[in-house]
Structures are given as C-alpha cells and as structure tokens.
Amino acid sequence: MPAGTLYRGREGMWSWVAHRVTGVLIFFFLFVHVLDTALVRVSPEAYDKVVATYKSPIVALLEYGLVAAILFHALNGLRVIAVDFWIKGARYQKQMLWSVVVLWIVLMLGAIYPVLGHAARELFGS
C-alpha cells in the first residue's frame, strides 16, 4: 500500500468504490431518461422512435448493466443504512456485504430472461 493513503482496501473500501461508481452511472442515466421521456410532450412519433432504439439488442445489454448498477446501489445502500443505524451494523458489515453480493447475483440471474429475452428472440429468432 502506498504510504500516506487513507484507502484501506478490502470489503469496506471496495463496496464504497462500487457504490460511488454505480451512483454516478445511475445519475447520468437518469438525466438522459428524463430527456427521452420528455419527448411525449413533442409527439407520439418522436417518443416511439427513440424508444424503438431502446429495444435493440445492444441497448438491451446496456439495460441489463443499468439493472446491475441499480440493484447493487439499492442493496448496498440498505447495508450502509444498517451500518449507520443498527447497533451491530458495523460489526456485521462484511457479512452484510456478502449477503448483498449473493442476493445481487440471484436477482441478476432472475433478470436475464425478462431483460434480455426480447433481444435474444430478435437476434436468434423466436
């Protein structure tokens, strides 16, 4: 470890890094998402045209990434709240992080078909 750094590594730091990175990504997506939804005030055609691009296989993959970021940020956010407000939160922060990771993997496996199914049908036929 470089001298004089505050970064300590391990579960605590890396979950914090992941929380930051996913948070920034979600915020940028949210900005774009409000802009695209605002097209319903322009015309139904303009909105449907943009949403049609969201149904392409590449954007479906990006959507899957977005779901991954949101699910991690949500689950780890609940862990941060538990660390701050639950009296035993700090003691069990590692166990809670691994619970978050396991739950995240399960939910991501469950999201494969609903989020990527239509893209697979488009690519490989139904």
């Binding site: 319903v40 909105y47 949403v51 149904k55 989020v115």
Partner: peptide, 8 residues
Amino acid sequence: GGVSKIGF
C-alpha cells in the same frame, strides 16, 4: 413483455 411493450 418487458421493454418491448413501452410506447406512447
């Protein structure tokens, strides 16, 4: 049907 149903 996920995102495929979304439209105006």
